[in-house]
Design a protein around this nucleic acid. Structure first.
Lengths: 226, 226
DNA sequence: ATCACAGTTCATTCGAAAATGAAGTATATC
DNA sequence: GATATACTTCATTTTCGAATGAACTGTGAT
């Protein structure tokens, strides 16, 4: 195990490869040239690095015409890389940074079956602010007002509550280090967004794109600018 | 973020440093010399690497006399490194290896407040086998027989169920890639083991040591050999 | 058929950082 | 005090693998 850990550490340890991996966190597949541009290096060099990453089982390739598309070989890769952000020096939690007040939300993806990333955290914060959900002993609960809100949206909380699976809980977001909501209610909300074409899944990955309709809806419902 | 990720990747990318980190996964603190022995390198060299790891915020040092004890600066470091095992090539799940049939259980640690690692997974499997818990739609539930079993042990499941926090759920073990039980029932079970001196915590870390009494009890209750 | 583009291969160069050697500080033991 | 041990510092060497240059394969467009 020791040596295998060393191998994998060596593979991600190179700055060029780390950049490749971080770029692929966006969720979609990239061509070799795109990645070379992103990592600011030559085609030969990127080719060598991509070869190593594929060899190591981190990436998979798909040829389309004269292009080769690289992406994570399985979704666990993205989770592990996100988890590595825990290794970053812990930011000082006491003072909040307000340098970039209205930064548009970039990171947008799913976490199993619910909305994660900056957008997931943003939606959760808005739900709290609007008192659609509230915190009781750190655990999220649906308020009376929230019952109506979801019902108006076409989601029946009562039906979900009767299911075996957990109804509403929080899930720690690796990259944001904040919580977002999970559970059947959160899954239903994501489904609503996908069904209503606020968001679209991109090529089998965990990444989502916000449609122009979505932009409008996210602002109207959550005052979130994307 | 990109560059910060590169930095952290570079830090763990060196084989000597990766070995240090993997060694520290055992949970206890190590002296510089112990780590040098483990990594098979010179004292000067280990000193240099340890310095870099401390600089990067991954390790903390404590001087005791002429020794210096190194350990993870915070427990998230261990979680992130465990998470990295997801990056290892997925083992072929179809055929099980039976090379080492009665390997004693080495990895033994806590995951937040419940038992994790090989021992945690072993206990969970035994509970299932003994029908103390069973799976309904992938979710663990306490059986009637289990009610009595826990009650005989001095743990009252009914009292725990009334608590707000989740009573019994599964938690994926990074390193074992199997599930172990979590929730208030699992926490109560770990408390029982600590109180009964089956296990002892070692110096503030997540690692646990099995006492000789524990060895006996684990065999009697779970048919687990350590 | 010809040219441009996307990507790879291989031999070679180059550089950052890992390892080493020698010497120094601090603590413990006799 | 004298000596051994634990660890560090710094200047120097060494090494490994990343990057480069040149040449090659395969696809697509004209």
């Amino acid at each position: 195990m020791d040596t295998r850990f060393n191998e994998i550490a060596a593979v991600i340890g190179d700055p060029t490869r780390a950049t490749i991996l971080w770029t692929l966190m966006e969720g979609r597949a990239f061509t070799a040239t795109e990645l070379a541009l992103e990592a600011e290096t030559s085609p030969q060099n990127i080719s060598m690095h991509l070869h190593k990453l594929v060899q190591a089982g981190l990436l998979s390739v798909e040829s389309q015409g004269r292009h080769k598309y690289y992406r994570f070989s399985r979704k666990e890769i993205a989770y592990a890389l996100e988890g590595m952000t825990l290794l970053l020096p812990r930011p000082d939690q006491t003072r909040q940074r307000h340098d970039e007040p209205d930064q548009p939300i970039r990171q947008c993806r799913t976490c199993y079956d619910h909305l994660a990333g900056k957008l997931g955290v943003g939606v959760t914060e808005s739900l709290l602010k609007q008192k659609i959900i509230s915190l009781k002993d750190q655990e999220p609960v649906l308020t009376r007002r929230g019952m109506k809100w979801f019902s108006d949206l076409g989601i029946e909380p009562r039906a979900l509550m009767e299911q075996r699976r957990s109804f509403l809980r929080t899930c720690l977001d690796w990259s944001e280090r904040k919580h977002h909501i999970a559970g059947s209610l959160a899954a239903a909300l994501l489904n609503h967004m996908l069904a209503g074409d606020w968001l679209r899944r991109t090529g089998g990955s965990r990444a989502l794109v916000v449609t122009s309709r979505g932009r409008k809806e996210f602002y109207e419902h959550f005052r979130i600018t994307i």
